[in-house]
Nucleic acid binder design. Structure first.
Lengths: 154, 154
DNA sequence: GCGCACTAAGTGCACGTGCATGTAATCTCC
DNA sequence: GGAGATTACATGCACGTGCACTTAGTGCGC
């Protein structure tokens, strides 16, 4: 029970690395997406996922929740917020009136298209380098990304 | 600008995998640590990090914040909560009276020691298998872990 | 010694989240 | 066809978080 130390240390290190990386990238995304496009990282993820569906067969809330790392209740509210910004719309499912289809509006598609380059370049910058960079929770130096991702500064 | 698709897709997939894995493990930890030991995943992480310091040279709040994926303000409040449970204590730094040392109490050390096997076995179970398991935000099936991690089941 | 910039930690506030529950629609089985 | 179980989504509530700011303490220049 004591001899597992080595294996366990490796697991713990792997875990901390995972958390550190995720947090670092997430924070960078949060920062840049909000600054440049007024979107949170979660919101972008939802819009981006949403865009992968055929407009003719939009996902239901539940379906969407299965592909985004938040709960169904959180998603429900987020859809409400996105709806208020006219980025998505809810439409009832006629065959099962409990169901709600979520579809990207034109405006939503546009915002997403604008934000995508920022998202991709943050990923490229932050996913690439050292897994165990200092850590986290602090705004990471993403100056290069800011420049790269276009001229829509501020 | 359009030709990067392949590379970008790979980045996005890598990113989603990272998030999915982190969320899955995190949720499992949250569930088991709370159920069995009344600790949140963040709290465990703080206590565990804390335990790596020599009692003679405890870390200051800032130092601790650099090794845990939350902000200093969140950590400040968490320390308050942990202090109320007598798991840690704050002591002033005499040489720099702005500083605050955080130290694990005996009780804190005990809770940590109890919780560690749970933590490790969740890691072993969840870190090991398929990176892109369905997803997440749902309680993952950790029945095996419950059994493995001892007889202190509720 | 005094003022000023700077750092460490704590706090008011608003907000997004999860859990538990509520409401509405559907399905099942008799 | 009607009661009860089940599913889909929304919501009340409490809570932890981040941001911006405050308070307390340090060090520097003059």
């Amino acid at each position: 029970m004591e001899s597992e130390s080595l294996l366990e240390r490796s697991l713990v290190e792997q875990w901390r690395d995972l958390v550190a990386r995720k947090t670092r990238v997430w924070n960078a995304l949060e920062l840049e997406l909000d600054r440049q496009h007024g979107l949170s990282a979660s919101e972008f993820e939802v819009l981006d996922t949403l865009s992968e569906y055929d407009c003719a067969e939009p996902p239901r809330v539940q379906e969407l929740a299965a592909h985004v790392p938040i709960t169904q209740s959180a998603l429900s509210r987020m859809i409400g917020r996105l709806e208020n910004q006219n980025l998505v719309t809810r439409t009832l499912c006629s065959s099962d009136r409990r169901g709600v289809f979520v579809v990207l509006t034109d405006e939503g598609m546009q915002r997403l298209t604008e934000a995508r380059p920022t998202h991709r370049s943050v990923l490229a910058a932050e996913l690439a380098d050292g897994p165990s960079a200092e850590l986290t929770a602090e705004p990471t130096g993403t100056d290069a990304v800011l420049v790269e991702s276009g001229t829509q500064g501020k």
